[in-house]
């Protein structure tokens, strides 16, 4: 079971308090009627599904009930960072400790 840090409550809590909410930073199209079928497919269905760092949304459903974002390594399941909704995604190099 994962321990997840809620950036709003500022506490590490058990995964059971949280609901996963899919990949993060997928922006709703500003002008939906202008989208082609392929662009709709990409928005609705295509996901990055990386073997590595994944930016994803979680909701502290049994806590503050707020959505937030997280960067997690998908092989080790280790959380690299959690951050509030609306904040930009953190710099990958600083998270993984690698030199760019």
């Amino acid at each position: 079971m994962l321990l997840i840090h809620c950036p709003y409550c500022d506490e590490d809590r058990s995964e059971l308090e949280f609901a996963y909410a899919g990949e993060a930073h997928i922006a709703r199209p500003a002008d939906p009627s202008a989208l082609s079928d392929d662009e709709w497919r990409d928005f609705l269905f295509v996901r990055s599904n990386p073997r590595g760092v994944h930016f994803e949304r979680w909701r502290h459903i049994n806590g503050c009930a707020r959505f937030f974002n997280a960067a997690r390594e998908t092989v080790s399941d280790r959380f690299l960072a959690t951050y509030k909704t609306g904040e930009p995604r953190p710099d990958l190099a600083s998270l993984t400790g690698e030199k760019p």
């Binding site: 079971m1 996963y20 996901r47 599904n49 073997r51 994803e56 092989v75 080790s76």
Partner: peptide
């Protein structure tokens, strides 16, 4: 499990 993962193991719950 609820989340994307390549870990080949899952949560005990």
């Amino acid at each position: 499990d609820a989340y994307v993962s390549y870990s080949q193991r899952g949560g005990v719950h």
